[in-house]
Design a protein around this nucleic acid. Structure first.
Length: 135
RNA sequence: UCAUCCGAACGGGAGACCGCCGCCCGCGUUUUUUUGUAUCGCCGGCGGAGGAACUUCCGGACUCCAAGGGCAGGGCGCCGUACGAAAGUACGGGAGACGCGGGCAACACCCCGCGCCGACGGAAAGCGCAACAGAAAACAUACCGCCCGCUUCGGUUUGCUGAAGCGCGGUAAGGGUGAAAUGGCGGGGUAAGAGCCCGCCGCGCGGCCGGCAACGGCCGCGGCAUUGCAAACCCCGCUCGGAGCAAGGCCAAAUAUGCCGAUGCAGGGCCCCUGCGCCAAGGCAGAGUAGGCCGCAGAGAUAAAUGGUCUCCGCCCCGCGCUUACGCAAGGGGAACAGAAUCCGGGGUAUAGUUCGGAUACAAUU
RNA sequence: GCCCCGGUAGCUCAACUGGAAGAGCAGAUCCGUCCUAAGGAUAAGGUUGCAGGUUCGAUUCCUGUCUGGGGCG
């Protein structure tokens, strides 16, 4: 498996999964972005379930409301967040579902800003490997 | 040469690494006795946003609805040519509106020229509206004024004349109001006036001529009625059945309950009507609720891919420094509007920068 | 994506088929009261989302834009 890949199975795209994480996950807010996170269940609705049960993955979902602007701006927020997640995922503990919901695009000007915001959120949520120590 | 505006074209390029979506080929993995199918992963190959993809303002293709007739409702509306499936677009022309100049010393609802606009059938079918102001706003009307007659009072050179009042008196010339006032100008006429009469113009009707046509010109007659608004209703002509890919179709799967049920039920604007029916075709409600495939494409979507980082070159701006100057330049910054979801054809709107053409403009600056 | 509605005073809404935009609440001033409140009086507050057009005249009719809301698996 690629180190920095982000394939279909690593994204949250079912309505039920979103619902579950939004209702049961923990919520952290910083720099205009909300993060819900939740350790993903061993027997989820995930397609290719058995493989995922053997090696838990962190999955990502992004909610972008129309309040952020036109389609171009919304796409950009989404892509930057996804890119930041993809390149920094190895720093997170395994098996966590994350949903990002930017309330404003103020702190998402470019990739570095998005990356910093994401790491700050992860630090506040205590799902970084270094902070957590024993896994 | 600068600036602004309008129109057209383009909408930075090359590479490295990390990634994403779809398809193809192959390999592996899971399931399976095996093969095949399917799931997932991987090597490789190919393809992967725009001129507006925006807007949803029109038109079509396509799909479903019983879609045959009528009603209701919508759209369009000067003429010609070309393109087009249609909407529409382009070019040319004609009424008409507005502005400027002239006829003209001055006026017009008059004429001529130029510019600019030009959603432009019908107001002598109907209905309605026309606020305020004004006497009067669509049948006719008399506020001021003008004129006539009578009465009273006064003046008087005995010819007349002044003032006030009265008249189911005459009058639409003038004043004033208004967006608009019952054709305009000039002359005759009259007590004063009036298309009352005449000339020119306008208007209406008829004929002839020119033009493919819209329309224009000329001649004759009428004798002025006939104000505006249809981008509110309406009438006339032409045209349109309705809904929309979340249209619609197929597959798989699980529980399987209740009610309605004949002069009824359903049919998505309404009606004519059409279909099913006299005890089972159908409909409704509840529980459960959600998937996959087709539609669907040489980009093709389950929460929706087309991205990120860096280097170089090109463009624009600022520039430490060098140079008499043209200019050269380390370094720094900037690059718009905007993201496909069934697909096409138009309209509208947004656009940094570069190039070309045009206008302001044979103007200004040098 | 497709299809529908709406935008009027600070807020919630009116305004008939075109004739110069009103009501309630809130706010201001005054009266009232020992002081508040209730109550009463007075005025103020509007580029009718924006830009064009039709018309003598547009909240109303037409066109284009901006913006808010809703429905459809």
């Amino acid at each position: 498996m690629k180190k920095f890949g982000l394939s279909k199975t690593e994204k949250i795209y079912l309505k039920n999964d979103f619902k579950l994480i939004l209702e049961q996950g923990k919520k952290v807010f910083k720099d205009g972005v909300i993060l819900w996170f939740r350790p993903n269940p061993a027997t989820g609705r995930q397609s290719g379930g058995e493989l995922a049960a053997q090696k838990p993955k962190n999955r990502i979902g992004i909610i972008v409301s129309r309040r952020l602007g036109g389609a171009v701006r919304r796409n950009r927020c989404k892509r930057l967040l996804r890119e930041a997640f993809r390149l920094n995922r190895h720093l997170l503990i395994d098996g966590v579902d994350c949903i990002f919901y930017p309330k404003s695009s103020q702190n998402l000007g470019d990739y570095y800003a998005a990356s910093a915001v994401l790491l700050a959120l992860a630090g506040k949520a205590k799902i970084l490997k270094n902070d957590k120590g024993p896994q």
